[in-house]
Each structure stands twice: as C-alpha cells, then as structure tokens.
Design a protein around this nucleic acid. Structure first.
Lengths: 142, 142
DNA sequence: TGCCTATCCTACAGTCACTGTAGACAAGGA
DNA sequence: TCCTTGTCTACAGTGACTGTAGGATAGGCA
C-alpha cells in the first residue's frame, strides 16, 4: 500500500495536487489507515500517471476526465478517444503557429534596437506604435 | 475625452479589463465626469495600446509594468528594455520547443490508432504506459 | 423637458490548475 | 519514549482576466 507522498514522488506530482484531483473527482477516494491517511494501490498509481502524462501533453483536466471515462468503458468506439486527441493536436498546432509569429516579431524588435537611451529604444517604439493594433479595432468595429 | 467603452473598442479590450489594469496600477486613475464616469485622453489610449500589444506578444503584466517604468525614464539605458525583450524571446522559444515535442507525440499517438474498440486504443495505451513518466520520477528521486 | 436605452459604476464571485499556509495529528525508526 | 517526517483539513492566493447583480449616468430624440 502506497502513501500519498510515495505516489507523489513516483509520478512527479505534488501531494496537494493529488488531493486536488481527488477533490474534483479525477482520482477516486482511496482507502485510509486507522489514523485517516490515504493508502493507494497500483490502480491509483496508474491512474495518476495517466493524468500526469496527459497533462504533460497539454490536455485540460476536462479533456482528461473525458478520456478517463472513455477508457473506463472498453467496449465503446475508439473514435471518440481519437477525436479528443485530434482536437488536442489541433490546439497545439494553433499555439505553435501563434508563438512562431510572436517569436518573429520579438526577434525583429530585439535585432533593431541598437540605441543607448530608452528615449530612442526601438523595442519600446514597436510596442508603442503598432498601428494595426489601434486601427484594427478602432476602424473595424466603429 | 474618451469614455472607457470607447477605449475598450479602440484597443480591443474589455471594459472590465481596463478597470482591472487600473486596480493593479498598470493604468493611472483617469479623470471623472461629475457623475463619476472615467474620461481618458490620448495618453490613456496610448498606454492601453502599449499594454495590449505587449500582452499580445506574451509579456506578463509584471514584465509590462517593468517596461512601462523604463519608458517613463527616457534617459536610462536601453539595455534594460532589451533584456526584458530578450528574456521574453527566450521564453517564447522555449515554449515553442516544448510544444513541438508535444505535437510530435500527439501526431504519433493519433497516427498509430486504427483499432475500433476503446479496449485496444493506442491513444489510451500511450497515455497509460509512458514508462519514462513513472521511472523518471520513481527512480531518479528515490 | 422628459424619457429611454446604452453605457457606466462598484463590489464581489468564478475561472483554471494548481500552490502555499497554519495548526494539528499519525507513522515509523533509534 | 521521543523525534522527525509525513499527513490531515480547511482555506487563501496565484495570473489575468471574466461574469454578475443592482443600481446610477449620459446622450439622443420627440
């Protein structure tokens, strides 16, 4: 039987996080010792590892809840699981695209700045005078 | 004189968000009408646009606070501003690297799954049996 | 001038996924 | 037995907003 601290170490999770997962119903309520401490079996360890790995892949706790429910009903179609994974993949791809655009703008910003006084700083200038930002919203929505 | 709603529209910000920025001291307290409504000048609009643009580039509110303070002292060295931007660039690059790894794993996961029952689903299998997750923490930290 | 509606006000609670804290109790080894 | 380490509950805090309730104000039109 494993204590909550052991589970935490094995999965790289904080103890509080495990209790939090229990609180929101992602982890089942485990058995307790006479003194009231949680004791887990292998099933608990596996479930937590599943949750942590899915979190590392960027799945939201809601998506993980869905995945866990699906994996608890082994006769259902794999397509639903696949859909969740595909959705996650698309989200990750969108985030990458967005971050690549940010990276380009930041690189340009940093590369252009070679003055020495803040008053002439290109970085601040770019941040200040991003015309599209004002016009996009100002003109498009009025 | 611009109302908070006009500022919101021009910069693509929610009204509550502007009030929030004021609350945490990012936006200065503006003048008020007799009836107590906020009225902004061009300076307020510029400052908000600066904040929103920096947010779009992924800067945290704390970083933006730093940038705003620097831009308020035009005689200081531009190097500090540059450092903030460089730090942000490195963070964005790190996030991209991480997301690309996620993308690869998600793609592999999705590509491998062609069964029809959840019981045989590769996606769930990958999520369940990620050996490194258990061993990394279990063996490295004990 | 009166009215009406859109906008504005404050204050507070909720979101997500944790993280930290306080004060008390339990487990296990020397 | 004592002592340290681990665990317990309950609650508050994080970042960056977002939403809601219940009321006051501004500005246009008849």
């Amino acid at each position: 039987m494993l204590s909550i601290g052991t589970l935490a170490k094995r999965t790289g999770t904080k103890v509080q996080t495990i209790r939090y997962y229990e609180q929101i119903g992602l982890m089942p309520e485990p058995g307790r010792t006479e003194g009231g401490q949680r004791r887990y079996g292998e099933a608990g360890l596996d479930r937590l590892a599943f949750i942590r790995h899915a979190r590392q892949l960027g799945f939201s706790l809601e998506a993980i809840r869905e995945l866990l429910e699906l994996s608890d009903s082994p006769e259902r179609s794999c397509a639903e699981v696949d859909a969740v994974a595909q959705r996650q993949l698309r989200e990750v791809e969108a985030r990458i695209t967005r971050l690549e655009a940010l990276r380009a703008e930041l690189r340009r910003m940093v590369a252009e700045c070679d003055r020495d006084r803040v008053a002439d700083c290109r970085v601040l200038e770019v941040l200040r005078d991003h015309e599209e930002c004002l016009t996009d919203h100002g003109k498009a929505t009025s």
